[in-house]
Structures are given as C-alpha cells and as structure tokens.
Design a protein around this nucleic acid. Sequence first.
RNA 1: GCCGGAGUAGCUCAGCUGGUAGAGCACCUGUCUUGUAAACAGGAGGUCAGGGGUUCGAGACCCCUCUCCGGCUCCA
Length: 663
Amino acid sequence: MAVKLTLPDGKALELADGATGADAAAAIGPGLARAALAIEVSHPQAGGEPEVRDLARALPDGAHVSILTAKSGERALELIRHDAAHVLAAAVLELYDGVKISIGPPIADGFYYDFEFPSGTVLSDADLPRIEERMRAHVEAAELFERRDVPVAEARERFVKERQDYKVELIDDLVSAADSATPLETVSLYTNGPFTDLCRGPHAPSTKTVGAFKLNSIAGAYWRGDSNRTMLTRIYGTAFFSKADLSEHLERIELAKARDHRKLGRELGLFTFSDVSPGAAFWLPAGTSVWNALVRLSRQMGHERGYSEVKTPQIYDAELWKTSGHWGKYRENMFTVNVEDREMGVKPMNCPGHAHLFSTRRHSYRELPVRYFEPGLLHRNEPSGVLHGLLRVRHFAQDDAHIFCTEDQVQQEVRGCLEMAFDTYALFDLDVRLELSTRPEQRVGTDEMWDRAEEKLTRSLQELGLSYELNPGDGAFYGPKIDMHMTDSLGRSWQLGTVQLDYSMPERFQLSYTGADNQEHRPVMIHRALFGSYERFIGVMIEHYAGELPLWLAPVQAIVLPVSDRFNGYGASVADSLRGEDTRVELDDRSESIGRKIREAELRKIPYMLVVGEREEGEHAVAVRERHGGDLGSLPVEKFAERLLGELYSATLKPRKSSERHA
RNA sequence: GCCGGAGUAGCUCAGCUGGUAGAGCACCUGUCUUGUAAACAGGAGGUCAGGGGUUCGAGACCCCUCUCCGGCUCCA
C-alpha cells in the first residue's frame, strides 16, 4: 500500500504506507527536509479546515499537503510561538517550586502562558530576565518536541500525581465535551526537555527554531476568563525566527507608542485628564474644535438623511430606569443622586429618554419612521481598572440616534444606518470589522421575533455585500446587533458604531402608533451610533492619523507666519481674510525667528503654514508651506483661499459612496 | 472590580546603600527684527500624588488611600 499526496503545485507524490511529514519533505528535496517545521494537511474533497501537524506524524492517504518552513509567514510564527510558550513553562517550573500550569497559546504577535504561583510568590517584570535566561538554555539545547498519544486515564493520573489541577480540569472537560457516540480515548502529550504538557500540538521538531524571543510583560488573567475564578499570573512574550525580525517588531511597537492618543492629545493640546475627575476628559480649545467638527458632521449627515435632533434630560426618576429595565440590569454602572428624597439616575444611555419622548404624543403611521438624533452626554460608572484615555471613560457623548419605525420598515432602516456608517467611515479612510451578535441566553421576546430580527440584520449585511464575523449569543437582551470595530495603535480592538434592533423598549414604554387600520400598533426601535462615542472616535482617529488630522478636522488649518514684526499688520489682514465659518486660521505674531515659528507649527501638525514677508506683502500673496516641509511656492491670497475651501469641500461634502469602498 | 508596575517643576526625565531637591524644553522679563524645523541673556517655578509610620534625619524604607500604565473581566 502507498500514500498518495497532492503538493501545493498540483503535483502528485507517492510515499510508502506510514510515511511522515518529514518523509514527504525529504522526498521533495534535501533543502526542504532541513527547513521543514511542520506540515499542513487538508482534504479538499472532504471539506474542513486545513490542519497543521507535526512532521513526525504519519500522513493520511489522499491528502493535500504543504510543508511549513520559516518562510511560511504567520502559520510558521504561530508554530514557534507555541513552542516558545512550552519553553517558558519549562523554565518557570524549574525556577519556581509548586507552580501550577494552565494554558499557553500563541496569540497575535506572540504568546503567553498562565501560571498559578504558590501564595507568597509575586512575580514582577524584574524576574523576566532570569526566566528568559533559563529559556535560552533550553532553546540552545535544541530539545526535541515529542508527541505521545496516551489513554485519558493515564494522562489524568499523571497530572493528578503532579498536582497540576488545571490540567486535570482540562482533561475532564475534554472528556465531557466529547460526543457520547465517540468517547475520547486518548489525549496528546508533548515533551520538550524536562517538560511535558497536555497539548493538541502541533510543534516544530525542536526548540531550536525559536530563533529570537523576548518576555514582554506580566499580567493577571482569570482562569478560563471567568472573573469568579482564580486569578492566574500571565507571562506575555513574543518569538521570531531571527533576531532581526524580533528587533524590527520591537521597533514597530516603539513607533506605535508615538501614535498613542494620550501622548498626542497632551502634546497637541487637545485634552487633558485630572485626578479630580477620573475617567473624564478636560477638552482644551483645540480638542473642542475637533469635537465640534465631528458634531457638525453628525448633524449635517443626519439632516440629509431625515434625522431630527432632540434634547433630553440628564437625570431621571428611578421609575423611568425601572421601566426601561436599566435599574435591574445596569444599575451598578449608573450614577445615582438623591433629589429631595427622590432617587434619580444620571443617564448612561439616551434610549429611555427618547422612548419617553416618543410616548409623549400620538403618532400616525404616516410620520414613521421617526428618527431622533442626540449627541447626548452620558455617564457610566465604569470600573476603575478599565479606564483608558479617551477610549474608555465615564463621561462621554454618543452620536446616538433612535429610529421608531414599523416592522415593515426595519430592513430598509437598518440598511440606511449601515450605509450612513460606511459613508461616514469613508471620510476617515477607516476600515472597520463588522460583527453580528445574535440572541443571548438571557433575552426577552419570542423565538419567532428573534428569527425575524436576526434575519433582517443578516439580509441587510448581505445586500450591502459586507463581510462580517458572527458572534453568537452576544446580542443585547432586547435584540440582535451589528457592531463596528476598529483597532488602536497597539492593535487593541474598540467598538465604534453599533446598530441594534429592539423589540423590548417599545413594549416596556407601551409605545404605539396609529396604523392605516386605525388600530394602535407597536413600533420597532433601532438604536444606532456611528462614531460610537465622540471621545472614543477622536481617540482612535488621533492614532489612525498619528495626530495629523485631515484639514477639515484640524483645530488650526493654516497659520500665518510673518517673517518679522514689521509684517504683522499684513499677516493679520491675511489671517482675517482667510478666516470664515468653516476655516480656522491663526496668526503667529510673536517676536520670534521664522525658523522657530515654522518648527512650532510643524510640531502642532498644522496643515498649512503661510509665510509672509516683504515679497508677499508686495504681491498680496502668501508663501505656502505644507505640513512635512512641502514648499508649494508663493500663491496670491485669493488663490490660496480657493484652494483651502476647495479641499474642505471635497473632504466632507462629497463623501465616497460606501459601494465604492466596500463592494 | 481583579493581578502586577509606576507617581519628583506644565512636559521629558536625573536624584547612589536615608543627610537641606536638579537638568533640558515650556513659562515670564529684557535684548534681537528674523525668509522655511530651536536667536541670546536673565528670572520665576516643587508640602517629591495624599495620609500615617520607622528614624536624630525620609523624595528614597514600611502601611493605607488616590490616580495613571500593562493585562484580565466588563464595555461606546
């Protein structure tokens, strides 16, 4: 018998029965045999995901295979990072007595391993070099990764004996998760040097392919991500094939830190934080200008799409929050206040206020959909540990809207929200990741209602040709939602926009409209925010643009720089003539050298610097310098004004259509 | 909220094993009148996050609180 394989180039390869991945690599060529780390196996006919396996395992007949080497990109990095996690565990077990190991997977950009240290042992960053050193010894020893499939009972006994409780729990869970028709008989153990771990694999042949690694940080992490369970000590690290790749990665991270919105926000004078109000930004004039530009955009786009702006109170009687359900589900996150013995809650969301507003008068089906927009200020009492610059605050404003419509209008309205979202994001050259979150365990409404709602969201996404991830069970208790995510400079993901279908709030607030049949009907509510919160959005935008905000958002769009005091008068007249409703122009009339004025304008990341001196005054012109030192030469003041307004117009008034970007 | 780390002038940071708090930039004053990324000189600025303790003596050591940073959980 023989094993027939298909290689990536379509060629067939026939090997003896029982041939391994290593045999396959050797059959293709000696160079590949040396470089091979693992083998990817798939059965296109049978379907299913390709699986990366150890080279030492026998190959199945009929498989398509592809040898993984150091050049195989992310898949190969994932492999050695997983290897590195095992080496880390080996080192920690040697250095510290009584450590319990849990899990250690590869992650984006690195790996981690979670440990429980005996009580009294506290690990800090200072301990990392010592651990790295021990790891290095194991890597240099080129210890082999050996896989053994052992009976469940044997593996369990082994870990019980070693007092590795977490491993025992993992085995027990694997057993109970297994199909009763095909019970789990064996689990795989991997041994590298002195260390044996319960692990599915795969691993490279030996530890030596971990060419360069570094332990980055220590953090707490709950066992199984459950805040009711033990907090373990997590050690984060990263690994690459070469030292050069590692240092390139570390440099990239350093560069990313320069984009941090907290740093740039301070440097650019946009906002600041203070101990007197944790989780709340103090907006300086420049930051307020950015803020206002965004609110203006929200208003303009909403106006064009049939939204009406409303204003609702900050503080409501507890009764309203009981009606909305927040008192029961969201109270720990709310600030409450006592007003003459009356318990009141500061609003963490606008929806109850909008629902109440809708209920204060009668509505005909003819006026639906009603679209209320409110850039409303919200307060949420977020746990102290989660506050994070502008990205997670206690005091913020959402570009929030609630649409009240008939069941028949839902689909079209959801679609409208998504189109508006992508028209908005297109203005910022943003790529967002979409998630569809479906019914959670705890929910209100019938299954039929959820079927309908989820189908409507799904169809809207499909009609627009948008790709999305499914996030089952993560919907709001009142309805499914589509969330729009973006990442910050260090790759952390933040939710910006959201579109949520809600059948519950209309019920709770007894909302109704009069239909064509003269009967009262329940409207459907759609919650939607596109920026999410202005705070978070501005934070993400600062990082997205590395502080170099586009012209229309820049707090100061152009600064006039007279070369000496003698031209301050002319400079002032230029600045005055350029300043308008949509233009923000400043004059630097300090008695400073032109070099300094330019340097400071560059540091403030002002898009245009207009140098004026004798020549310019004579010609009624400005010498235009673009951010980053681009000298555009001299332009008559009127020409420059045209250019400025032209750019502003094209940036915000003619957004690219979502279909052009996301077809 | 939980785990770990940190907090010195507006900002970036020195300050050794405890012995009277420093620099650069920014700020103020004066001089300079500047042509595309830093003119020169002088001055002012700190209950060393806050509180308690150890000590003859604490920015340094110990405890508590607050805030921030990195994670976890949670979230726009």
